[in-house]
């Protein structure tokens, strides 16, 4: 057993290598099995384009909604001493661990035509939510927003609260302080949270198919299209999967660049 500096003991090395293989091999398999000559024609079919466009639009909208609602929530969790704050945090992070299908069912029970809010929306405005693109955005927001909240709350906790004090002594009220001091200070955390949230929304499957259904053009996002294609034409499923893999890798690189870029600026 190697005990010198820099050596990795075998009981750690072997499982670590297995873990790497386990994580990387399936992705390699995807690349090996990809129908490279047919790639371009497959990608340019209207069905794929539609699913890709819908995925990008709905994930982006879900991220925007998460930012507008989630950043203030993170601030409340990080900076106030409200009673029941830990209970509140537990509640809002439930979607992180909840099976997405259950989330979809829950959304359906609230916003469905017979649901608590849905019935009222239907009667008062003639609006039905389920099985629309709106439902896709709602399902994705439900599942992805906690990622943003947790990430931003962490950034807020790490930021020095005394900058808020300094701003207050300079005449800034809490809202001005939030806009002009807190927000810029935690911007890298917000960016990271938004990217994470967007990636999660892009991959959303369970809640979407339960709450929004699987209609090409309106609710059929990329993951749903992959699942459907796998049963009919596996080649197409592989192509679609490759697209999602490429987007995920790009996301990861973007995140890295942002963090590294930030770090070198502030250093």
């Amino acid at each position: 057993m190697s005990r010198h500096r820099g050596g990795v003991p075998a009981p750690l090395l072997v499982p670590a290598l297995l873990a790497v293989a386990f994580l990387v091999l399936p992705l390699a398999g995807l690349l090996v099995r990809a129908p490279w000559p047919d790639l371009l024609p497959q990608l340019t079919t209207p069905a794929v384009g539609e699913a890709l466009r819908l995925s990008l639009v709905s994930a982006t909208l879900a991220t925007l909604v998460s930012l507008v609602l989630g950043v203030p929530l993170a601030w409340v969790l990080a900076r106030t001493r409200a009673r029941g704050r830990s209970l509140l945090r537990a509640l809002v992070t439930v979607p992180l661990v909840l099976p997405p299908v259950v989330g979809g069912v829950a959304l359906f029970l609230v916003l469905g035509r017979q649901g608590l809010l849905g019935r009222w929306l239907d009667e008062a405005f003639g609006v039905t939510v389920p099985f629309t693109t709106t439902a896709v955005v709602i399902a994705e927001t439900f599942v992805a927003m906690p990622f943003l909240v947790i990430s931003v709350e962490g950034a807020l906790r790490a930021a020095d609260v005394r900058f808020d004090d300094a701003a207050a002594t300079l005449g800034a009220d809490r809202w001005t302080t939030f806009r002009r001091v807190t927000l810029p200070l935690v911007a890298p955390g917000i960016a990271a949270g938004a990217v994470l949230c967007w990636a999660r929304a892009l991959g959303e499957f369970g809640a979407t198919i339960t709450f929004a259904g699987n209609f090409p053009g309106t609710t059929q996002t990329m993951p749903l299209a992959v699942y459907l294609a796998l049963q009919q034409e596996p080649e197409a499923a592989i192509v679609l999967s490759l697209v999602l893999l490429a987007v995920s890798l790009a996301t990861l690189l973007l995140l890295r660049d942002r963090w590294l870029g930030r770090a070198s600026v502030s250093a």
Binding site: D160, R162, F163, D165, A166, A167, T169, L170, V181, P184, L185, A187, S266
Partner: peptide, 13 residues
């Protein structure tokens, strides 16, 4: 009022 802190607390951004 004006306040000067020990570690200046200038806004880094």
């Amino acid at each position: 009022l004006g306040m000067v802190f020990q570690d200046h607390l200038l806004f880094p951004h």
